[in-house]
């Protein structure tokens, strides 16, 4: 780890001011991605802006058809929240199966979504539910937010404040873990919204979470595991590594989508 300055602002405005003034400063919440990178000297920020003291970033609340989760909600908070469990049980189950206990006790939803690791869990829920990202300055639809590997619509200095999830009629998530890292090798989040819209988001398989249009269409016509069982994902453009080729991941897209629908009921 290299030396860095440390700030702990008390408000979103102060945090944004610090981050805007220094383009080499980085926000940190649970640190589950940034801290290992710092320890391996892969990252050399001038300053860390610790978000943990900002009350505006906390809290989970249900209002009408919307569940709003503050950026600082840890995975364990989401997993154990009565609001999440009753409104979007698939999201609570997802949170309960991220990483291990240590990761869930530190990692936050805002950090995971802003980082947009292709092997992270939350981006699939955000895209699969068509959530809205609330930042210090605007609201961004999930479809516009995830732009590529570790790339989002967030501008330099822009802070993710909360995520608004529409409460769906039903939703499910299934994933195959990378045997070594236990990150997602391929996952599928499926949802039928109250509007009737059906969304399928695939994570882990490609460089960025993406929607599977063919499956969405099939599930719109027939919400059942069988509806997606024979839809083949093209391996083109998917990730390939020593644990899973693009072909294997493409196959898993179908298997996980099928299982996610079965889980959603």
């Amino acid at each position: 780890m290299y030396d860095f300055a440390y700030h702990k602002p008390g408000s979103v405005a102060d945090a944004v001011k610090l981050l805007t003034a220094d383009p080499e400063a980085r926000p940190i919440s649970g640190g589950q991605t940034l801290l290992p990178a710092l320890k391996h000297r892969l990252n050399r920020p001038t300053a860390l802006v610790d978000l943990s003291g900002i009350a505006e970033l906390k809290g989970i609340r249900k209002e009408g058809d919307t569940l709003t989760i503050g950026a600082l909600a840890r995975h364990v908070d989401v997993a154990e929240s009565a609001e999440v469990t009753s409104a979007i049980p698939a999201l609570a189950r997802m949170a309960a199966n991220i990483g291990d206990i240590q990761v869930r006790n530190r990692g936050t939803i805002g950090g995971s979504v802003a980082n947009n690791d292709p092997a992270a869990d939350y981006p699939a829920a955000v895209l699969g539910l068509g959530a809205t990202i609330v930042t210090d300055r605007r609201r961004i639809a999930a479809d516009d937010f995830f732009q590529g590997m570790f790339t989002t619509a967030l501008e330099p200095g822009e802070l993710l404040v909360a995520i608004e999830f529409p409460i769906p009629e039903k939703a499910g998530y299934a994933k195959m873990r990378n045997p070594a890292s236990r990150y997602v090798m391929t996952g599928a989040f499926v949802a039928r919204l109250r509007s009737g819209e059906v969304r399928v988001a695939i994570n882990g398989a490609g460089p960025c979470v993406f929607r599977q249009a063919e499956m969405e269409k099939a599930l719109s016509a027939n919400w059942s595991p069988e509806a997606v069982a024979n839809i083949r994902q093209s391996p083109e453009g998917l990730n390939s590594d020593i644990h899973g080729s693009a072909e294997y991941r493409a196959h898993l897209v179908t298997v996980m989508a099928k299982r996610a629908v079965a889980e959603a009921g």
């Binding site: 070594a180 890292s181 990150y183 590594d241 020593i242 644990h243």
Partner: peptide
């Protein structure tokens, strides 16, 4: 060494 950490070496 591609499997040079616990991220890729599976214990």
């Amino acid at each position: 060494l591609l499997s040079g950490s616990m991220m890729d070496y599976c214990l």
